[in-house]
Amino acid sequence: MAEEQETPAVRLLHGCPLDETLGAFVVHCDRDSYLELCRSLRSDGYAMPVGVTGVDYLTHPGRTVPQGVDAERFEVVVELCSLVARKRIRVRCQVPESDPRIPSLFDVWPGTEAHERETYDLFGITFDGHPDMSRILMPDDWEGHPLRKDYSTGEIQVQFKEARR
């Protein structure tokens, strides 16, 4: 973390607010700085993509985010690991409800491929530049994205509806 700066209000890492929660380093960013930040982290030595997932903050709007970050409905959470330095860092990127799109990290770490497909499948966040943005866990003709907070759990689609009885 060469460019880490100590400022009285917010610590910055590659121009994005760095937070420390429960012993873990978390960088908050928005969509515009997301890809650039991830590329910088990659060159910092975070070679392993541990995972990509999403969180839908629809019913928990009052969460704390550092100064300078606008809380949006969705968050894409990327967990990274540096094997050499034995360090971990988490990237939390805000994704607005009106346009749930975010650049894909496939070019930076190919190992995010399946994780991004899963996040698309369960949250409906589209990853631009992903080679195969299709559903991975749910059937291809499934309607809705189950892990969204406004997805009704009581209502179950009839599966195999095209199969003959």
């Binding site: 195969d132 059937p139 003709d141 195999f160 095209e162």
Partner: peptide, 20 residues
């Protein structure tokens, strides 16, 4: 009769994107 497997298939090379 179609199943709901949909497009989760190995497409022919000519109709698969280069990256995929």
């Amino acid at each position: 009769a179609k199943t709901n497997e949909g497009t989760q298939e190995l497409e022919p090379r000519s109709s698969t994107g280069v990256t995929e």
